[in-house]
Nucleic acid binder design. Structure first.
Lengths: 343, 343
DNA sequence: TCAAGGTTCTAATACAAATTAGATTTGCTG
DNA sequence: CAGCAAATCTAATTTGTATTAGAACCTTGA
C-alpha cells in the first residue's frame, strides 16, 4: 500500500542484492568484506529513496528499533491534575533524549474500561518496542510474571513482593529514608511519634510503614506510639486524643493530609511545630495552596524515571541479571515543621 | 529464545494446519467452512498453550503498525508547569485509546540543543510510524513542506500560512470566536475597546488580532481603539492613559496578563467590571492564583488533540485531500468581568 | 456412474529485514 | 598451473501471521 522504500528497492537501484544492502546499512561492511565503492552506492541510493527501516519487520526478526515502550496500567495524561506519573515521565523523557531513544506509549491497551491488561484479548503490543518500562500500582503481578517468563525485556518502576525476584526494577529507598528520619526525630528528643497512613496497601506506603515500625523498635523500645488513621478519622477529637496521649511528632504519609492537619491544629490552637512537629513522607509540589515550608522527605521520581531508561538499555545489552534492582535515595527538605518537643 | 506458543504449536497440538488455526482464531470459520468440532479443538489448544498473537508479525503482514507519531519541536513533558501541550496531549491520548492506536514520542530528535529537526541526519525518523501529528509554534515551515512533499501522512495542529495548502490541519476557530465576542461587547454598549497582545507573531495570536481589527471595522467605524502592549508596558501610567482615552473594555490575549491587570486596577482603585470590562482570549486553568471568574474564551485544546488523531486515521485511509482542514469552535466562559460601560 | 457442487482442510506465498551458508571471482604461492 | 585463501557478493532461510488458490473427500442428482 505504501510507497515506502524497502531494502529491495535500494538493492535494485544500486544493482546489488538485498543481503548486501542489509549488511551495509547495519555497518557490517568490514566483517563481510563489502567493497567501499559498493557501500557508497548503497548509501547514496538509501538517501535518495529516503529509506527508513520497517519497525515491524525488524522487531519480528528480533532486531532493535530504538523504541522504548512505556506502559502504565492507567492513562499517562490524566484529566485530573496531580498526575502521579508526571514527574516520572519527565525523567523518562529526559533520559530517552540523552540516550537517543524514542518512546512508545501503549495507549491501545486501554481500550476497555479499567486498568489496561497486557494480555487482554491477546493484544500484547509491547513487542513492537525493544523493551518496556512498566509502571502502575494496581495488582498485576501475574501479568508481570508472565511477561518475565516470556523473556520480554522490561524494567519495573516500583516494587512488588512477588515481582521482585523476576524482573529488574527501580524504586525509591523508602526504608533508609524513613529510618534516617526517625533517628533525626529521636535526636530532637521526641519519644512518642504517630504515623498517619493512607488506607491502602501499595508497596511504597507499606515500606514506609514497615520502616517506621522497625525504627520504633530499634531506637528505643516501647517509647513510640504508632497510629494508622483512615480518611475521615482526622477530626478535632482525634487530635485531642493524640496530644493527650503524649504524642509530640507526626509522620504524614500522604501530602494531601498535611494541610488538613494544619487546619485542624489551627482550629484547636495547636502550634506547629512548637506543640507538635509534623513531617511529610512524600514530595510536595510548589503551589499557592501549600501553607508553609513543611519538613518532608522527597521521592526522587525524576531520577527514577531516568534511571529506568538507562537500566532498560543495560538489560537489553545483557548486562544484568533479572533479579537486579536499584533503590535511589530519597531527598530531605528541612522545612520549618520539625522542632524539639515542648518541655 | 521464545517460550511463546505460535499458531504452529496450536496446529500441532490440534492436529491441523497453521492456516486452519489462523482462520479459526480470526473468526473466519463460517466463510471458510471450518468444522465446529475442529474449531473447539483449536480453541482448546490455544487456551491450553496460552496463545497470544505476535503483533509484529501481524503488523508486518497488514502493512500498518498501529503507531501514531507525535512530534513537537519542544519536549512534551517540560519541567516548567503550565505546559502548552499538556491539554492537547490529553486529547491525543484519549482518542488514541478509543481508536486502538499507540503513540510514538520522538524524543530521539531532541538530542542536540534547540528545536528538534525532523530530518535529523538526513533521515526522516517519523516514518517508523504509520503517520504523525505535528505540533509546535516555531518556524519550521520548510520542514513541514518537505515532509508533505515526501508524501508522508501527517496532520498539523495549528495553522501556518504556507503550510495551509500542503497538509491537513486542525485548529481553533479564533476568527469566529473573537468576532462573536466583539459583537457581544458591542451589544453591551462599549465603543472603545483596547487589545493587550503578546509581542510575538505566532498564528493563533495573529488570528485573534486580525479578527479583532476586522470586527472593529465591521461593527462601527472608528469608534474603537486598538492597543498592542509589550511586556513591561503594563504600569499605572499605561492604565491611566487608557482610561483617560475613554476605553471601557479590554481584550487580553494571554491569560498570564489577566492577574497583572487585576493588580494594576486594584492599585489605582479601578473596579472591574464597573469601570472597566476585562475579557480573556484564552483558556484559564483552575488554580488558587486566579482571583476571580474572568469572562473569557476557551481554546478547545482537548478536542483539537482528539480530532487530530481521528483525522490522521482518516487521512491514512485516503479519505481526505491534503488541503483538508478543520476549525473547532472556541468556548465561552461568561464569568463576571464583562458589564455595561460606566454611564 | 459420473459430473456438479459442497464441505473441510492444506500448501504456498507475501510481508521486510537479518543471517547463514555458500558461490564466484581474483590473487597469490609453490 | 594446480591449489588455497581472501575478497566480494548472493541464494536461501528465518521470524509469525494472513490469505489465496486449490486439493481431497463427500454428497447428490440425472
Amino acid at each position: 500500500m505504501t510507497g515506502r522504500p524497502r531494502q529491495s528497492d535500494i538493492a535494485k537501484l544500486a544493482g546489488v542484492s538485498q543481503t548486501t544492502v542489509s549488511l551495509t546499512l547495519n555497518g557490517k561492511t568490514a566483517e563481510h568484506g563489502i567493497n567501499n565503492e559498493t557501500e557508497q552506492k548503497i548509501m547514496a541510493a538509501a538517501r535518495q529513496l529516503g529509506y527508513v527501516p520497517n519497525v515491524t519487520a525488524r522487531a519480528l526478526r528480533g532486531g532493535r528499533n530504538g523504541l522504548i515502550g512505556v506502559h502504565a496500567f492507567e492513562p499517562l495524561f490524566p484529566t485530573s491534575k496531580e498526575s502521579y506519573y508526571e514527574e516520572i515521565m519527565i525523567g523518562i523523557e529526559q533520559q530517552a533524549i540523552r540516550s537517543g531513544q524514542d518512546l512508545v506509549l501503549f495507549t491501545s491497551m486501554h481500550q476497555d474500561e479499567g486498568p489496561a491488561s497486557i494480555f487482554h484479548e491477546g493484544r500484547n503490543r509491547l513487542r513492537i518496542a525493544d523493551g518496556a518500562i512498566i509502571l502502575g500500582f494496581d495488582e498485576h503481578d501475574d501479568e508481570l510474571a508472565r511477561l518475565a517468563a516470556e523473556g520480554f525485556p522490561f524494567v519495573f518502576i516500583g516494587r512488588r513482593e512477588k515481582a521482585a525476584a523476576l524482573m529488574p526494577y527501580v524504586t525509591a529507598d523508602y526504608v533508609t529514608a524513613v529510618s534516617d528520619l526517625m533517628r533525626l526525630i529521636h535526636r530532637h528528643g521526641h519519644r512518642r511519634v504517630a504515623y498517619i497512613g493512607v488506607p491502602d496497601n501499595v508497596m511504597p506506603r507499606l515500606e514506609r510503614r514497615h520502616s517506621f515500625r522497625m525504627a520504633c523498635t530499634d531506637l528505643d523500645l516501647t517509647i513510640v506510639d504508632s497510629t494508622l488513621a483512615n480518611y475521615g478519622e482526622l477530626d478535632p477529637g482525634w487530635l485531642e486524643r493524640l496530644l493527650d496521649g503524649g504524642t509530640t511528632a507526626l509522620l504524614v504519609e500522604s501530602t494531601s493530609h498535611l494541610e488538613e492537619i494544619a487546619a485542624l491544629c489551627a482550629g484547636a490552637g495547636v502550634e506547629i511545630p512548637d506543640r507538635l512537629s509534623v513531617v511529610g513522607l512524600d514530595s510536595i509540589n510548589n503551589s499557592p495552596a501549600i501553607s508553609r515550608r513543611w519538613t518532608h522527605l522527597t521521592v526522587p521520581r525524576l531520577p527514577i524515571g531516568a534511571r529506568a531508561v538507562e537500566l532498560l538499555l543495560e538489560v537489553l545489552d545483557g548486562q544484568h541479571e533479572l533479579t537486579y534492582h536499584e533503590r535511589l535515595p530519597c531527598g530531605f527538605e528541612p522545612g520549618v515543621t520539625l522542632a524539639r518537643p515542648p518541655a
